[in-house]
Design a binder for these strands. Structure first.
Lengths: 344, 344
DNA sequence: GTTAGCACTCTATTTATTGGAGTGCTAACA
DNA sequence: TGTTAGCACTCCAATAAATAGAGTGCTAAC
């Protein structure tokens, strides 16, 4: 086990390296932080820490940089929970209120805030609620041969599309048709409304083929929309601010990975189970980001996973800040979603 | 005026430079393209072209690169209209069909296609139709004290939101209320539905304050949505593929500009009047992109501007390809929008 | 156990050297 | 008069050599 002084020195080295991105030398530590010991002593300690696997030397005459093991130790044992400044909180609040029209906007804002606050790439995965229950459909007349088909689910979501109706069809007839279809499907989860079910319905209900086809399409689209997990990325530009990515090639390769929505989704889903997950360097099994670290937080509502957010950046990452920000966002989102739920 | 040989040489230099990004020397031209004249002759011609302002030398012993004036001449007089390969067209079609749920998806796809095909940043500005006319509102019951408020406009757009209703309010009462509000507002353009008008309405119609407030919010939100011009960016990542942007600082500064939605919007609006507009280097008055060129196409439907798309890149840009792609997209969009219009 | 001192190492930066691509000029040629 | 070969000249880019500096590791003294 490391003694207190070693821990302290290790912590200082890690934090100095995190903020400067330069290998840290014994003199730097002695000068910047008053430990009451000389560079030579620090040197001895550093030498020990290197043997123990916590530090690495890029070359003999450079300072030392933390190893993956050091970061692991740091996030597990050294880091102390911080709190956001009032200024940061105000900033976050203003960003959230800036644009909030739909659920999607909230996720998008989260990604944006996360990346701005941490200067790293952020990813947000929104799990859609596949359990929404079909309520009823309704036709809103538009003109002589068009109407709007509205599909209402019990969570208050409405999807609509314009459908062509037979010329001269009367509102009462449409209402009757809507009523019949509604009765057939009411109470079913959108996800269980399968093609089979719809075809069976077809036999049974549909007086009018054109109308029915439009209806089919709309409901399929809606259940697909509901089942979809969507990914929101933020701050891919921030990459350029990190010295690790001063090389354009590295930026390109990482952006190439992030561009593949499927990959990002898999990446996020993989770490979804635990509340807060930090993977450092090669701890992450996805190729291409093994020289990066990732901090991921998953949030739930009534035990169900609502979404997950993550920050991806160089292993030299401000873990403390990232965690603090995520924690705050987590609470913020919780409040928002619970409000939303109460409302419906 | 330039004689044919000078024109030919200038064209070859421009096209060679566009594809290689390297200064072009007399020998290169002589070797690559069989003009039947020696490098020395080409050298003389190049010397003339430099005096005339068409070519520049980065330094004495480098080849020459085209000046802004040369590009201008190139796009005005030298460029010959090309056509897309079948492969490209198939690619475009597949990208468009890949994801097409809403109007926004079409614009987003356009931006994506434009950037992929041209390897440059693309911008698409979607003008919203502020002239949508209010048709009616309708309440769809949800549960004992919530309903969905639907606002229908005559272009077939529906906006909806969940509103709280007084406990025990009966559907007939709600229908009555909806009917009265609808009659008041019917036929008005969304943009002319001002706060004043709504307040006046308030006095007159509203029996129920809570309900009415929700309704107000929804309609305001909808007219705002309709009035909004939205910007879609594509291929900011492609920047990194251009040798001009091998320097991270340059990338950052350009991305910084593109990040400001307002700036991009102004930029696009400024060039909206003409059908096809090409600005080369400093011809563009917006600071920060004066070392770039921009090709912009504005498309209209029934004389009204529907949107505008642009490609932004280094002055060394494949103008021919860009124009060809835009032309194709233009036609493609036209067909799509006209279909859409017919439908409604 | 701590520390000053010093030799040693290795890199990053600066400076010198060289090779090559390209021009411009001149003189000869058709 | 236009074209071209030849050659000196220029300037950059790439390579090589020299230098400065930061940092370590070791030793011996405290």
């Amino acid at each position: 086990m490391l003694n207190d002084r070693k821990k302290k020195i290790l912590q200082l080295i890690i934090e100095d390296y995190i903020s400067t991105a330069e290998p840290v030398g014994s003199r730097t530590i002695a000068r910047k932080y008053d430990l009451g010991i000389s560079p030579a002593t620090i040197r001895n300690e550093m030498s020990d820490l290197e043997l123990l696997g916590y530090l690495e030397q890029p070359h003999t005459s450079a300072g030392r940089i933390p190893s993956a093991q050091a970061y692991r130790f740091y996030v597990d044992s050294l880091i102390e929970p911080g709190s956001l400044t009032d200024h940061d909180m105000a900033l976050i609040n203003s960003w959230y209120t800036e644009r909030r029209r739909s659920i999607d906007d909230i996720f998008q804002s989260t990604a944006k805030i996360l990346s701005r606050m941490t200067q790293n790439v952020s990813m947000v995965l929104a799990n859609k609620d596949a359990a929404a229950v079909f309520r009823y459909i309704k036709f809103l007349p538009l003109d002589s041969n068009h109407a709007i088909l509205c599909i209402v689910t019990d969570d208050g979501n409405v999807d609509n599309c314009v459908v062509e109706i037979p010329l001269g069809m009367r509102p009462e007839e449409m209402d009757y048709l809507a009523g019949r279809i509604s009765r057939e499907l009411e109470g079913k989860e959108l996800s269980e409304i399968s093609d089979d079910l719809l075809s069976a319905l077809h036999m049974d209900v549909a007086e009018d083929k054109v109308l029915f086809t439009s209806f089919l399409q709309a409901i399929k689209r809606m259940s697909r929309k509901q089942n979809e997990q969507r990914v929101f990325l933020g701050g891919t530009k921030q990459l350029l601010n990190q010295p690790e990515f001063r090389d354009v090639e590295r930026v390109k390769s990482l952006l190439g990975i992030l561009e593949e929505e499927k990959v990002v989704r898999d990446l996020l889903v993989a770490g979804e189970d635990s509340g807060l997950k930090i993977t450092i360097g090669t701890e992450n099994k996805f190729t291409g980001i093994q020289d990066c670290s990732m901090v991921q937080a998953t949030y739930r509502l009534n035990g169900k996973i609502v979404g997950t957010m993550a920050v991806l950046g160089p292993t030299r990452m401000e873990y403390g800040k990232v965690i603090t920000v995520m924690d705050y966002l987590h609470k913020y989102l919780k409040t928002m979603f619970e409000q939303d739920q109460d409302k419906e």
